[in-house]
Amino acid sequence: MDTVGLNSYLLVAAMLFVCGVVCMAVKRNGIGILMGVELVLNGANLNLVAFARYTVLGLDGQVMALFVIVLAAAEAAIALAIALNFYNNHLTIDVDRGSELQG
């Protein structure tokens, strides 16, 4: 309890990851799903940075995390544009409505 090691950070990251996955799975709101994706990416980021701090991997983990942040921002922009298009076509953001391609 007294010293914070790699374990503690990995547990927090696992918690964030699981919350994100569950959020992606259960939310029907398109933007809610996006938020789940952000949580998942943050969990992964926390892992990378924790490994960068506590193992010999050093700076490389942080570089990876920076790339993840940049790509997450890009992903959010595109996904939001898609969500707006979805809204224009269906007049709702409920992703369960987008089932036209279902056979």
């Binding site: 927090v12 918690m15 569950v22 959020c23 949580l39």
Partner: peptide, 10 residues
């Protein structure tokens, strides 16, 4: 805070 808020998001 991180875990609790993540849970609250869900």
């Amino acid at each position: 805070i991180a875990c609790g808020s993540a849970l609250a998001v869900v």
